[in-house]
Design a protein around this nucleic acid. Structure first.
Lengths: 192, 192
DNA sequence: CTATATTTGTACCGATCGGTCTAATTGGTC
DNA sequence: GACCAATTAGACCGATCGGTACAAATATAG
């Protein structure tokens, strides 16, 4: 029962710190300092650093899925929505000065083969997002805007992991140039 | 002036340790132990952990490029070579039990926005490989096997970063299923 | 109010971090 | 052989790591 600190706020802080720095670079003390809580409270809320990170991923997975569902409810054609969605993600990363990419991609790459619980949480978030993207792509296929050469889920996975691939290039070049190039090619790929 | 230890061997050890564990998970002591050298020798060869890692990336970048150039000299059509190349990379990752992916992708994601020298080294290795892949794709375009809808370099970058994107999925699902799916879709994408 | 359980705050733990220092050893040159 | 520079060896440095211990403070139940 909530006393002084709020678990969701701590997870939110963890999201920002982990997204920018990765898992092994960040120490518990950095999170305590950033969130303004003492260590006792942290280990009251969370069993371990891994458990904390799992919950960060889960909370982000849920809130991002909700945001996506809302985004795809805008009044536009399915293909236009997909285009706007990825354009928006690229814009966000530019505003972020190319510092972070996606938490789930970062955690998957850095810890996916090292810690089972982190892998599971990352995978579940990813798949939950793919459901939403596949749904809008399916609508585009039904309306004839999007290719039926592959299933909606295959297209969603192909495009979204494609974006993840560009994050490595983005971080290293500190530029959106390659993401824009990827965008044009990917959007052409899914067009009917 | 080589005394007792060989710099290339130390870098080779570093390659394996860093590829599997990432940058921040690995301590100098682990590399010393794995390579069987004392700390004094390490800091005789390398200025710092970052300098060491830069040289690991550079050596791997060079040796991998040489391997690629040889691979593409096999007696096959350009498209068949590209297919065989990526099939082979997927096979390697399966044999590796999906533990590592690509060092350059891992370093780019984990450290690309954090350390300038690591970013530079990662970027240079990546671009050096893209040159080789673009070359074989160009040949495929000239022979009519590969689409001319995009330049050879654009296609090479799109495909290769696409593969990088799948590594996150691979590590988290511990399976080649998604890589195979990506392979089919990507190869279809570049076909004329 | 008292009794009890939970949360908060901080000191502390052994282990490890990246890196320095210096002595002993080695190899090459005269 | 003597001499010097480079290399090797590992003890040592302060800082930080993830996590524990425990007492003080706080909230809830009666």
């Amino acid at each position: 029962m909530g006393y002084k600190y709020n678990k969701e706020n701590i997870l939110e802080t963890g999201y920002h710190v982990l997204r920018k720095n990765g898992y092994h670079k960040v120490g518990i003390n950095e999170i305590l300092k950033e969130a303004g809580i003492p260590k006792g409270s942290f280990y009251n809320f969370f069993e371990s650093k891994e458990d904390f990170t799992v919950q960060v991923i889960q909370q982000y997975g849920r809130s991002n899925r909700q945001w996506m569902e809302k985004f795809f409810q805008q009044e536009m054609s399915p293909l236009a929505l997909v285009r706007a969605f990825y354009k928006h993600l690229i814009d966000i990363n530019e505003q972020d000065d190319y510092a972070s990419g996606c938490l789930v991609n970062a955690m998957s790459n850095e810890t996916g083969r090292l810690y089972d619980e982190l892998a599971k949480a990352s995978n579940e978030s990813f798949e939950s997002w793919i459901e939403v993207i596949a749904e809008i792509i399916k609508k585009g296929q039904d309306s004839g805007e999007i290719t039926k050469a592959h299933t909606a889920k295959e297209l969603a996975e192909f495009v979204h992991t494609g974006l993840y691939g560009t994050f490595a290039r983005m971080k290293v070049t500190r530029s959106r140039q390659f993401m824009d190039q990827w965008f044009d090619m990917s959007m052409k790929f899914i067009e009917a």
